[in-house]
């Protein structure tokens, strides 16, 4: 550990390297810093939202190695070497990701606070490839609360964006399914 690393409460910050939205970032984090607080407070990437901080709302959903997770319930220090995609990393320059565009088109939000989490979750869900029907989308998107109640519009947006999103997955999809594949007999 670096002699100049920041300390707090007698604990020294730990160095980690993550691939964040396509960029390699070398960071120093305290052990108790959640992935969410790293993004919001240390890296000023506030697109990922804190709604409950306890894994009960989904507003903090990000894609970790291509899989959707609650960034509030995991420690940044545990993800040395990981690949992370946040809402800021989904668009291709000025061109919105198909899921983002569909959310605008279908007015799949009101206040917008749950929206980045909904979108990351929807992309993660498409990558999992387990939602074939509207009922399955509803169930598999139930980890993302929307207090404004825009669920029907969220459903419509996801339904429309699924095929295009599938096309964008490529490498991400491989990663997400790796866990399943490597243990196949």
């Amino acid at each position: 550990m670096n002699q100049n690393s920041p300390t707090a409460g007698g604990i020294i910050a730990c160095p980690i390297t993550i691939e964040l939205n396509g960029q390699t970032r070398q960071l120093e984090v305290f052990p108790w810093t959640t992935l969410l607080d790293l993004l919001r407070e240390q890296l000023a990437l506030t697109g990922t939202k804190k709604g409950c901080d306890h894994g009960q709302c989904g507003a903090c959903t990000v894609l970790l190695n291509g899989r959707r997770i609650n960034s509030c319930l995991t420690l940044a220090v545990m993800h040395d070497g990981a690949e992370l995609t946040t809402i800021e990393g989904l668009a291709d320059g000025d061109s919105l990701h198909p899921m983002q565009a569909a959310f605008v088109k279908h007015d799949a939000f009101q206040c917008g606070y749950c929206t980045p989490g909904q979108i990351c979750s929807a992309v993660g869900m498409v990558s999992e490839g387990r939602a074939q029907s509207l009922g399955e989308i509803r169930e598999q998107m139930s980890g993302n609360l929307c207090r404004c109640g825009a669920y029907p519009n969220i459903l419509a947006a996801i339904e429309e964006a699924m095929p295009e999103t599938r096309k964008t997955l490529g490498a991400v999809q491989t990663d997400a399914q790796k866990g399943v594949r490597e243990v196949q007999p």
Binding site: I87, L96, Q100, A101, F103, V104, F109
Partner: peptide
């Protein structure tokens, strides 16, 4: 018409009270 603030909200650029640096 689509929300004028829609693109800011879907890209995470809309900033809320706790998000100003």
């Amino acid at each position: 018409v689509d929300r004028v603030d829609g693109p800011l909200k879907v890209t995470g650029q809309a900033q809320y009270a706790a998000e100003f640096q």
